[in-house]
Design a protein around this nucleic acid. Sequence first.
DNA 1: CAGATAGTTATACAACCATCGTACCAACCC
DNA 2: GGGTTGGTACGATGGTTGTATAACTATCTG
Lengths: 111, 111
Amino acid sequence: MKRRSSSRSHLTAQQFALIGKALADPRRMALLEAIAAEGEGCACARIREQFPVSKATISHHVKELVHAGLIDAQRDGQFLHCEVRRDVMAAYTAELLRRTGARRGSGAAAG
Amino acid sequence: MKRRSSSRSHLTAQQFALIGKALADPRRMALLEAIAAEGEGCACARIREQFPVSKATISHHVKELVHAGLIDAQRDGQFLHCEVRRDVMAAYTAELLRRTGARRGSGAAAG
DNA sequence: CAGATAGTTATACAACCATCGTACCAACCC
DNA sequence: GGGTTGGTACGATGGTTGTATAACTATCTG
């Protein structure tokens, strides 16, 4: 079952937390950047050439990124093609700004 | 020594990593949201009423947020007033999008 | 089938980290 | 000064996680 919710522009609280955790690790973040730089068809083996980590670690990080919804991965024979979900990235940053930028406009009797 | 670099719109690699880690923990993220919702003068004690954690934990998280540059904290007598750095938040989200949104414009070795 | 390549899974380990309790310091109020 | 409140520093602890090795599956090629 695919996770691609076709251009969703809203994130659940759980997905927001997952994305935050996924982006926290510098190695994983760099991996995400590499996937983004590669374009559409990006095999893990290609990525692995750029990072001094074992393939098990790559697989682990890719799984985390997919779980967070930050990338979309699909097998093509031996290869696993990864692609960054730009819409999810945009939704995450928007939610981040919304959560920290909004004053208590709701007037929810904070005191 | 204040960390406020007066409307900086660029983040160092280190600060980017620090912010990512700071935002990763759901509790700390919620704390940041609470600080943002409180407005300018936000004492830790006020925040503590909203979270079932010890004051030591609050202090720890606040320190992390300050270290990451996400909030600005200054003592006022007994109280520690915290304020969200909206500019840093904006810079972080912008950097996040820049790192994941840019294609390989250089067209380097497509094969 | 045999071999090579790409990726997954299981397990283990080390490092990190969120949390708490306690003790402590600083400021306010009487 | 004595008591209360707000916050910090230190130490311990339990949980999380990034990483590697090894064994495994799946695909491609000959």
